[in-house]
Amino acid sequence: MATVSEAGGFGDDRLPSLDRLRWALGLVVPALLVVVWHLLVATGVFASHQLPAPLTVVETLYRMAVAGELAGHVSVTVQRVFFGVLFGAAVGVAFGTLTGVSGLASDLLDPLFQSGKNIPSLAWVPLFLLWFGIGEVAKVTLIAVGAFFPVYLNLSTGIRNVDEDLLEVVEVYDLGRIESLRRVVLPAVLPNLLVGLRGGVGLAWMFVVAAELIAASQGLGFLMSDGRVMSRPDIIVGSILLFAFFGNLSDLLVKGVHDRVVDW
């Protein structure tokens, strides 16, 4: 056993170039799928009015991009996600801190939020339409609801679970409430906050689809439902790919911030 693992270790040391290319391995299967997809459409297994060929999708997206149509949809959706996350995370930080610091607040509010997180995103849509109409407020609020829960839950638990050993240090050295929050509790829960934010951004993308599918005249979700109405599968698949792309991009962004900030 020992020799096997040693040999493995040796290999890793000697071939750093392979290690550096490791991320590219993740592209192999998707690339194969695209090839299979192309073959299935080209050989007529799928009718092209149901599933367009990959190149058709790319062509459609390209044409819409050149016409300037795409940028509008993308920027509207990205803005909704951005503001939704901003408001949802802000409220999540406020309540997460409150319930994390105060046992009373936690007893009062946490059960409510814990059960609220299980309500599916689509269930809110009719109510928000009724309250806020079909404007931006309804959509941003819906996304904010999605982004709120992961931020709230992670932060609240994080604050309650700050290492007891460190809190004793704080007590022995009489740091005081404000100082101990600033120098110990906040840095200690920063990783929780960023993990929550990452989850919040993920949910925000789910909620934006819900919002835009139902009531919107612009945005990627609208583009999708428009594609269905006009029987344009290339637009639908293109929108899905764009959601995948921007969803991943925002996730990588938050992860990048996390890795930069949480560097200990």
Binding site: D165, E168, R183, V184, A188, L190
Partner: peptide, 10 residues
């Protein structure tokens, strides 16, 4: 303390 109990981020 028995363990150093340092702030890992500081």
């Amino acid at each position: 303390f028995q363990e150093p109990r340092l702030l890992p981020w500081a």
